[in-house]
Write a protein that binds this DNA or RNA. Sequence first.
DNA 1: CAGGGTGGGTTCAATGAACGAACCGAGGTA
DNA 2: TACCTCGGTTCGTTCATTGAACCCACCCTG
Lengths: 170, 170
Amino acid sequence: MALGKDYTGQDCSLSRGLELLGERWTLLVVQNALYGVRRFNDFQVRLDIPKAVLSDRLTRLTEGGVLEKRRYQPSPPRYEYLLTAAGVELWPVIYSLSVWSHRNIGGEPPRLFRHAACGSGLLPSSDCPECGRIEPGEVEMYPGPGPKRDDPVSRAMNRPRRLLEPVVPE
Amino acid sequence: MALGKDYTGQDCSLSRGLELLGERWTLLVVQNALYGVRRFNDFQVRLDIPKAVLSDRLTRLTEGGVLEKRRYQPSPPRYEYLLTAAGVELWPVIYSLSVWSHRNIGGEPPRLFRHAACGSGLLPSSDCPECGRIEPGEVEMYPGPGPKRDDPVSRAMNRPRRLLEPVVPE
DNA sequence: CAGGGTGGGTTCAATGAACGAACCGAGGTA
DNA sequence: TACCTCGGTTCGTTCATTGAACCCACCCTG
């Protein structure tokens, strides 16, 4: 973790995970990648994060194997950051922490999730209560009662859609 | 989050959770509380964390309803920090992030976990593959192949034991 | 009753991130 | 020619972390 020093001396897997994921903003970047955000500018607009910090987080997540940077058009050169398989596996972690926060801190969720195939809401583990374990691509997100940000990226994200489906602002 | 500023402007539950749990060291404190660490000095010895930071994190977790501070003897006054019900609910989050880290970053785990009643290893969700959802108190931890710290608290923690069972060093 | 040990902290100077505004360069577009 | 967008980098200020030193109430020992 670039915060001060690393967690050397800790003996658990968790500390190694936190070196990569535990910095400020990092998990929110991954969450938005799961929601379909892919481009530098879209992350920046949606998160209101200093560009230098976003640049650092995207680089570290790419080096850490969570994201993959890809040029999606040759000219002018434009890039997108896609979740790797390892990155997609963070969905249960992020979802269960969101559920914990909603239950134990409060606030209305701006987005809800259900199994697209059967319509059931998800368990805190991100499993479907009817069908058991499901992949993020089978999860549909749709607007909930909570407040939403009002920027082009957030507006595009609030239309009902699958996880990982690319966000297209405007 | 005391890191710079808070995540005001974010619209998701996750950002509220990260304000409480997302700072450096915080999730490691909760993890050790699940492993049975309860006292200021024991956290400090086991984590090698600056005392000022530990003090801050314990205070914030207490204010946030994750820990409860209790005097366990009147004279000399001595305190312990116990997980609340909300704190115990963080076990699946912490376990699933540990499993992710082990799988995607590597390293040998110093501690393993199984359902005490049936002996099965846990799923990444912290459920038992045989029995389904289980409580942290039903989970037994025992030494794994990975390296272990060598301090009195860590040694006491490496004896096979239930989650939440108080650590007694010496 | 003086001296030392323990638990649970606080204080402080130095270091290192985060912030936000400004800037930049390549490639469109009017 | 001038301006816009995307994807950044640079830089001075602010804020958190670090580690060493200190503190105090209470116990124990000689």
